[in-house]
Design a protein around this nucleic acid. Structure first.
Lengths: 207, 207
DNA sequence: CAATTTTTTGACCATTTGGTAAAGGTTACA
DNA sequence: TGTAACCTTTACCAAATGGTCAAAAAATTG
C-alpha cells in the first residue's frame, strides 16, 4: 500500500533498489540523447524493459527521474575542478585537470550529454546549481589568477581558461557523433586527444 | 488553390517571402532552444504570430522547416573553415579562423545551438552533410599537417586542432547560459574570450 | 503456509501534438 | 472593378503522451 517513492523512513527492498537503478540507467540513455522534452516515458520504460505504469510506480513523474539523474551527475561532475590544489605545481595542476576532464568525457559521455542538453536548452531545471557552480568557479579562478600573478603561469583570463578546458574536453562526449564521422576508425581517439590537449594547454599557458 | 510550397516554377508572392521569413526566424528561435523533438508547431506558430494552420500553409511539416534551417545554416557555417588559405601565413591563418568562428558564435548563437542540438542528439537528420564535412575537414587537416611538417606550426594532430577550435568558440554560443551565469555582468565577454583564445592558440601552436 | 505487503499489469483518461478540410476573406492583375 | 488566385481561419481528427486506477500476481513475513 505504501508506495516506495514515498517511503521516506522505510527501508528500500531489494527489488526497489534494482529496479530504480534499471530505470535510471535507461533514463540516462534516453535523456542524454533526446533531452528532457524530447524523451518519453514510454521510451524509458522500453529501455528499462518494464511497463510504463510499473516505471511510474518507482518514479512518480518524468521530472523526478530527470532530477535524480541531474543530482547524481552534478555530484561527481565537478570533482576534477574541486581537485585543483592551490598548493600544487600550477602547470601540473592544469594538466591533471585537463586529463581528468577528458577521462570523464570518455567514461561518462552520457552524463556529459545530459548536462549539455540541459544547458543548451537554457538550464531551466538547474538554476540553483548554477549558483553553486559560480561560487566554485570563482574560487578556482582566483587560485589560477594568483598563479598568473606569481609568474608561474601565463598571464591569462582564468575564467576563459576554465571555459576552454570544459569546451575542449566535453566536446569529445557531446559531439562524439561528429568526431566519429570525421575521424572514422582512426587509431586511439582518446590518447591522440590527450596528447594534443596536453601540448596545447602546456605551451599555451607557459609563463 | 495552388499551394505556395508546391510552387516550383511559380514566382513567390511578396506575402510568401515575408511570411516564410517570419516563420523561419521564429522556428530558429524555438528549435535552437528546444531541439527538434522538443519543439512544437504551436510554439513556432505563436512566435511567428500566426495560426498553426496558417504556418502549415507555408511549410507542410515540422520537418520541412527544420530542413530549411539546417540547410541554410550549413551553407554559411563552414565558410570560415573553407577560408583557410593553404598559401597564407600558417599562424595567421589559424588566428583568423579562430576569430571568425568566435564572431560567428557571437553573431549567430541560435544557429550554433541548432547545430549543437542536432549533433548532440545523434545527428539523425544530417547524415549526408556529415560526409561532406568529413571531406572538407580532411582537406584542411592536410594543409595544416603540411604546415607542421614544414616547421611553420607546432607538430600537432590537425584534426584535434580543428576540434579544439570548434569547441572553444562554439562553447560561447552553446553554453551561453552557463557562461553568463558564471561571468555575471563582467565586461566584454567577447573581447576577453578573443584575447584569451588568441593567446592560447598562438602560444600553443608556435613551432 | 496463510496473511500481509510489495510489485506488476491492463484498461483507461485528459491533454498535447502534428496535421487536414473547407469555407471565408484578401490581393493583384486584367 | 471583377474575378481568379492567394491567404487565413475555424473546426476538426488521429496518434502520442503523461499519468491514474483497481485488480491480479509475486514476495515477504509471522
Amino acid at each position: 500500500m505504501s508506495k516506495p517513492r514515498a517511503a521516506e523512513t522505510q527501508r528500500r527492498t531489494r527489488i526497489q533498489a534494482e529496479k530504480e537503478e534499471q530505470i535510471l540507467e535507461a533514463a540516462l540513455e534516453v535523456f542524454s540523447r533526446n533531452g528532457f522534452r524530447g524523451s518519453t516515458i514510454d521510451q524509458i520504460a522500453e529501455a528499462a524493459e518494464m511497463s510504463k505504469p510499473n516505471l511510474l510506480y518507482y518514479f512518480r513523474t518524468k521530472e523526478t527521474i530527470h532530477r535524480v539523474l541531474i543530482d547524481r551527475l552534478l555530484n561527481t561532475w565537478l570533482d576534477p575542478l574541486r581537485a585543483i590544489d592551490p598548493d600544487g605545481e600550477p602547470l601540473g595542476e592544469i594538466r591533471s585537470y585537463v586529463r581528468r576532464k577528458l577521462e570523464m568525457a570518455r567514461d561518462y559521455p552520457r552524463e556529459s550529454r545530459l548536462f549539455a542538453n540541459e544547458v543548451l536548452q537554457g538550464a531551466p531545471r538547474i538554476q540553483e546549481e548554477m549558483k553553486d557552480l559560480k561560487v566554485l568557479v570563482k574560487e578556482k579562478a582566483e587560485i589560477i589568477a594568483g598563479w598568473s600573478r606569481a609568474g608561474k603561469l601565463a598571464d591569462c583570463d582564468p575564467y576563459h581558461l576554465i571555459f576552454s578546458i570544459w569546451a575542449t574536453t566535453q566536446h569529445y562526449a557531446d559531439f562524439d557523433v561528429q568526431v566519429r564521422a570525421i575521424l572514422g576508425k582512426r587509431g586511439d581517439r582518446f590518447e591522440d586527444a590527450a596528447r594534443y590537449l596536453d601540448q596545447l594547454f602546456l605551451n599555451g599557458l607557459k609563463p
